[in-house]
Amino acid sequence: MQDKDKKIKLIVLGGPTGSGKSDLAVKLAEEIGAEIVNADSMQVYRRLDIGTAKPSAADLARVPHHLIDILDPDQEFTASDFRREAAAAIADIERRGKKAIVVGGTGLYIRALLHGLVDSPTGDPELRRQFDDVPGDELMRRLSLVDPETAERLYPNDRVRLIRALEVYLQTGRPISAYRSEHAFSEANYDALKMAIRVDRGELYRRTDLRVEKMLEAGLVEEVRSLLAAGYGRELKSMRSIGYKEVTAFLAGEMTLDEAVTLIKRDTRRYAKRQMTWFGREKDIYWLEYPGSFATILGHVIEFLA
């Protein structure tokens, strides 16, 4: 029987899109008898299959997966929701005598699960609306005046986080970095082995470009057309994700397919770069070379669990 004061041991696998996380997670899970908990913010949605690069039917059959296809495309899902649902899945896996491998590229979800969320004010939609037409560079300039620490970590195209930081300051008069500083001393929720796959940037970009081409071949345009026909509009968070928003614009006659593909590749590369930056800033993370060092990775995992 597990000591109630003893933290659950958790394997966490992150890294950029196209790095091979899902493949590695399945192989590790088979070796140690584990189950996988998805930490990708788009794979939680049903019907968004090709553009989110969900695990194949074969991989889903090989290893039990959790938090995949749990929502319709018009439902909201936040980091707080993920933390609650993932914690419940991990507890269930542990009760059945298994181990959980949390895998995904949504760094905020992983951080929320391991360390909780910053106790800052809840959102104010009316307050946020004043920033709707403000360019990213101007948002950065305003934030740098009141919270230079947060502004330094963000980019002009990261509108969600820029607006959130400004919103918190306007609500409280305190920068969100102050809340994060206080939160940094909170105790971790799990005893986690945090790993991420490192890929040379040139190779990573080659992989992401190839990944986009395979998505188009697999029927991404038809998938988006089906979602739109089912009433899932382009204003939804799920439909604004990379791949879906560009194909939606193509189907609306706003650009050619070649232009849409070029944008998808560009935005995927940019997203992968941001993911590498995010995980690069995480503490206590073990960087992996994969697939060349699987035996070494497995050895570290077994040693950690023992």
Score class of each variant (00 low, 15 high):
64 P>M: 06
17 T>N: 08
87 A>Q: 06
97 G>C: 12
81 D>H: 14
264 I>K: 03
296 T>R: 14
179 Y>D: 02
224 V>A: 08
278 W>D: 14
210 L>D: 14
36 I>Y: 00
240 R>S: 07
75 Q>E: 15
128 R>P: 05
98 K>P: 11
177 S>W: 03
162 L>Q: 03
265 K>H: 04
47 R>W: 10
20 G>C: 02
129 R>Y: 08
206 R>G: 09
209 D>S: 06
83 R>E: 12
70 I>Q: 04
186 S>F: 06
299 G>T: 11
204 L>H: 10
190 Y>N: 02
16 P>Q: 11
215 M>Y: 04
201 R>T: 15
245 K>T: 13
140 M>K: 11
22 S>L: 04
58 A>T: 06
80 S>R: 15
152 E>K: 15
126 E>N: 11
23 D>W: 10
200 D>Q: 12
159 R>W: 08
299 G>R: 10
245 K>C: 10
146 V>S: 07
125 P>S: 08
65 H>P: 06
247 V>L: 02
155 Y>M: 15
137 D>A: 12
302 I>C: 09
128 R>C: 05
190 Y>K: 04
194 K>F: 04
78 T>A: 04
170 L>T: 11
251 L>K: 01
147 D>N: 03
5 D>K: 12
304 F>R: 13
246 E>I: 03
141 R>E: 14
288 L>Q: 05
213 E>A: 11
64 P>L: 07
